[in-house]
């Protein structure tokens, strides 16, 4: 709101705008983003469908915008907003949100049984080798806070967002360059698994250090186009 007030306008007696100052800042320019994702990309707590962008890796954020442009992710308002942004502008916007450090806020968690939470923890930390489901932690970082340059953290995301995104991977309204390992993993998850892992992840306490792991620190168990852009990627 402060931002809007900063758009100071003064009028002369004739009523014509004499001095008009629009802040020449990126923050002012990207009102289309911050209206839903928050001025610092903190996301919207009341609705899990407007995810936090703050602190996510730059390359991850750029790729998501590209995916909305090229049809790999489907959500009409986002497709409309980013459709003609240039690579340079997307990079600048991504750097802005990646650099934001704002506290995580706890989002509502559905009431689930202890068994469900244990299943969620099992999937997140160890996976389910019998069904060839790798652990979330094998790619998203030991602390599940993501890994540079392009793997997002999972801690701090709302239940609604995680479960709806896993559903979107399954139904194909969210996808990534081939080989699309998240799509494969989502296909192997049961609906109850999605519920369990989303509830467990959303219930995790935020640690003081939410930084993504350094680049090269993970050795993913699957071949992923998103991790090896030269390999089958666009």
């Amino acid at each position: 709101m402060g931002l809007w007030l900063a758009v100071a306008m003064f009028y002369t007696a004739t009523g014509r705008a004499a001095v008009t100052a629009v802040p020449d800042t990126l923050q002012q320019r990207i009102a289309a983003c911050t209206a839903c994702h928050g001025e610092h990309g903190e996301g919207r707590v009341k609705s899990g469908f407007f995810p936090r962008l703050a602190g996510k890796p730059v390359a991850y954020l750029v790729r998501q915008m590209q995916n909305f442009q090229n049809g790999l992710r489907k959500y009409a308002p986002m497709e409309y907003t980013v459709r003609q942004l240039s690579p340079a502008y997307m990079q600048e916007i991504a750097r802005y949100f990646a650099a934001q450090q704002v506290p995580y806020r706890r989002s509502p968690i559905p009431t689930v049984s202890a068994t469900t939470l244990r299943r969620g923890e099992q999937l997140a930390q160890h996976g389910d080798p019998g069904r060839r489901i790798p652990a979330c932690a094998s790619c998203h970082g030991r602390r599940l806070t993501g890994a540079q340059p392009s793997i997002p953290g999972l801690i701090g995301l709302p239940y609604d967002y995680i479960s709806s995104q896993l559903g979107a991977w399954r139904s194909g309204t969210r996808s990534a360059p081939a080989p699309d390992c998240m799509a494969e993993i989502a296909q192997r998850l049961r609906a109850s698994d999605i519920d369990a892992v989303a509830a467990w992840l959303a219930s995790r306490a935020r640690s003081t250090d939410m930084q993504a792991e350094p680049a090269g620190s993970m050795s993913p168990p699957m071949r992923c186009g998103v991790l090896n852009p030269g390999e089958g990627g666009r």
Partner: peptide, 24 residues
């Protein structure tokens, strides 16, 4: 409802934008 950015052009590479009000 949609808000959005003005076109990104050579002359306006970092356009200002309008917030979408669909949610508000």
């Amino acid at each position: 409802l949609l808000g959005g950015f003005a076109p990104v052009t050579q002359a306006n590479p970092r356009p200002y934008s309008m917030p979408p009000f669909a949610q508000q």
